[in-house]
């Protein structure tokens, strides 16, 4: 891919506090994986897990992933419930497409969806969630413009393509509502997916 300079939004260099926060989140995550692997919550496990995590972070430093927001419990719950429901619907849909009597194969489409919040975390989470909800599969992500390229299965018309684009934006809004910073929440509120956006998306 071309290493084009990032245009939107400008990423400010991480402050010392933000870097420390990232490191604490990474330490907590790695330690909990270690404790889950051992299966019992004991001081020995937590301390050995912390030691392993510190060594890991020192030897393999993570690229800085900015997590500017905080976890909002209720929207988070909403996101997970909706996600599980979508996963069930998606599985039944694919199972039906697989088992139905032979006929015309389903139509698909590849669409570009420029996300409103262009951060690495939002791009990753939206892409991961998209693959597991009905109809969509992530094909390519363009980090400089924050655009996801999505393969959509089982479509009948162009109208359904545009409808699906709106569903992607709704999923992004749910993720940002669960994890976003006030600035990101504002950006979602101020940019509802209007017909103009959709036009711009099909450039």
């Amino acid at each position: 891919m071309t290493p084009a300079p990032p245009v939107d939004p400008p990423r400010p260099p991480l402050t010392r506090a933000a870097r420390r926060r990232n490191r604490i989140i990474a330490l907590t995550g790695l330690t909990s994986v270690w404790v889950l692997l051992w299966g019992t919550l004991s001081w020995a496990n937590v301390i050995s897990g912390l030691v392993v995590a510190i060594i890991l972070l020192a030897v393999f430093p993570l690229p800085p992933v900015t997590f500017a927001g905080r976890i909002h419990p209720l929207p988070m719950l909403h996101f997970w419930l909706r996600f599980l429901q979508d996963l069930v619907i998606a599985s039944i849909q694919i199972a039906w497409l697989a088992l139905r009597p032979p006929g015309k194969p389903p139509f698909s489409a590849i669409i570009a969806v420029p996300l409103r919040v262009n951060t690495d975390l939002n791009l990753t989470l939206t892409a991961e969630a998209l693959t597991l909800v009905p109809g969509s599969l992530i094909l390519e992500a363009d980090r400089t413009t924050g655009t996801l390229f999505v393969h959509v299965i089982n479509l009948r018309s162009r109208e359904e393509v545009e409808e699906f684009r709106r569903e992607v934006y709704a999923l992004e809004a749910r993720i940002v509502a669960a994890l976003g910073s006030p600035d990101e929440l504002r950006r979602i509120r101020e940019n509802p997916p209007s017909p103009l956006d959709l036009e711009g998306a099909s450039r």
């Binding site: 693959t131 992530i138 390519e140 655009t147 393509v161 998306a201």
Partner: peptide, 30 residues
């Protein structure tokens, strides 16, 4: 999802994909 992404991306511009079944392809333009 990452595995699906990698396989899909590796296979994308090749003949394994039935373009006659695609309604639109905005990745090709990109």
């Amino acid at each position: 999802p990452v595995a699906a992404h990698m396989v899909g991306r590796a296979g994308y511009p090749h003949e394994y994909i039935r373009t006659d079944l695609l309604l639109t392809d905005e990745l090709a333009a990109h």
